Every structure is written in structure tokens, then in C-alpha cells.
Amino acid sequence: MNGLYLVTDSGIAHQAGHTLPFVVEEACRAGVRWVQLREKDLTTRAFLELGVALKHITQHYGAKLIINDRVDIALAVDADGVHVGQDDMPHQLVRSLIGPGKIIGLSINNMDELKAAQGADLDYLGIATIFQTGTKQDTSSLLGLDGLTAICQQTSLPTFAIGGINATNSQSVVKAGASGVAVVSAICGQTSPYAASRELIKLFNGV
């Protein structure tokens, strides 16, 4: 399984003329095997309906569907796991709700947060924010490649770096120590999500 992780943004997808299910289908068809449904502005009903649609797609391609923050949605659609940030439901509680067989990812923004998560029952870490990005407004503490390397050296968990990652800089991120790269606009906002995904996977495999 390659280390390319798609994080959804329906607004960016719609600006590019796509529906979110289309983007996810094209990405999975290209070889993406990690998809995180991250939608902050949808109603619960709309989020659920979208989750059901994406579950059918990811299941067909053997990809993992991770739900951002919403444990209730993850349980309702039988997603593969949940991703939580530092201000979301505590990951210990998430684990008690979704059980031992599901995936939990946690966002890490600095070394203090990494230390607090040492020994926790987690499956991977999302390391943010690496580069300036339009999809994350709070970039007061950009890690850069040096910050990413420092965090990756202090954990044995798989790490997905996120924040301004695209075809131009993805290889440098992996060389800095990340297990994989998580992207938003580099797939959602492209004319061809399939071609964009194929290019990123090719770059990733060429590291």
C-alpha cells in the first residue's frame, strides 16, 4: 500500500468542477488507498450520506476510509477508522467507542504534543503543518522539513505529513522522514484527480 493519503474538501472539489464521490473514485482508481472524509460544514445527514457513498467506493477498491472527528459517522457507515485533532474527542475515548479493530490517527503539531501521545493506542500520526497552505488557516507554527524530521525521528508510528504538499515537494517530505504524504488540493482541486493521483504515486514510489 503506497503512502498517498487523500483528505477531502468538497469546496475545493466543487471549484474544480467535481463532486466529491467523483474525486474519491478517480483517486482510488489511480491507486490511492487512504481516504479521509473531512467536512466541517455539512449537516449530520449530509455527512452521513456522503460517508455511505464514499464507503462503497473505498470498499470496492480496497482503500481505507477514515472519518475526521465524527465518531458517530464512522460507526454509522462502518468506516475503517477515525482521525482526531488536538481539540477533538480524546483519542482514548475514541478507542473505547470504535473498538480495537479500527484505525485511529492523531494530528501532531509540535514536539510537546508528540511527547503527550507517546505510548498511546494509536495507529498513525498526521504531522502538520509542513508548508503554507490555503486549506489550513492557522499556520503560525509551520514545521517545515526540519520540524518534520525532528518529529519523525522521535516516533515509531507511521507518519503522514500534511500541509501544502504537492507534486513539487512531495519527495522532499518523504526524504525528511515521513511514511507518507496527505494532500487536499493536490488531488481535489485538479482538472484530473486521476492523473494527479497517478503522478503523486509515481513520485512517492520513486523516492
Rank of each mutant, 00 (worst) to 15 (best):
P193N: 09
V174Y: 01
P193S: 12
L122V: 00
V184F: 10
D138R: 05
Q118A: 07
I165N: 02
K202L: 08
F160S: 00
N205C: 11
S140F: 01
A120P: 00
G206M: 13
G119Y: 12
Q153K: 15
S172T: 09
D123Q: 06
F204Y: 15
C152N: 14
S185T: 11
L143G: 00
G189V: 03
G177D: 04
A128K: 07
T149H: 13
I162G: 01
G119A: 08
Q132M: 09
V184L: 13
S141K: 13
G206D: 15
G119P: 04
L142I: 14
Q153L: 13
G189A: 06
V183R: 05
N166A: 03
G206P: 00
D121Q: 10
G163R: 09
A182I: 07
I130A: 03
G177R: 11
T129S: 14
C188E: 01
N169T: 07
V174W: 02
C188P: 01
G180D: 02
S141Y: 08
D146N: 12
V181H: 02
T129D: 04
D123M: 00
D121H: 07
T168N: 14
Q118D: 06
D123T: 00
A116T: 02
S192R: 07
G180Y: 00
L203F: 06
A182T: 09
C152D: 11
L200Q: 09
A128S: 15
G147C: 09
I127L: 06
D123P: 00
D121R: 05
E199K: 13
I127N: 00
Q137I: 12
T133N: 08
I187Y: 01
G144Y: 12
L143Y: 01
N166R: 06
S179T: 14
A120Q: 11
A161P: 00
S197Y: 06
T139E: 08
A182E: 10
A178T: 00
E199F: 03
T129W: 09
E199I: 11
S185N: 12
A176S: 15
N205W: 05
L122E: 02
T149A: 13
T129L: 10
T135R: 04
Y194P: 01
I130G: 00
Q137K: 15
Q132R: 15
S192E: 08
K175S: 12
A117K: 04
G134A: 14
V173S: 02
D138F: 05
G126K: 04
A150H: 04
P193R: 08
K175T: 15
C152S: 04
K202S: 14
T159K: 01
L142W: 04
T155S: 12
L125T: 03
K175D: 03
G164H: 11
F131L: 03
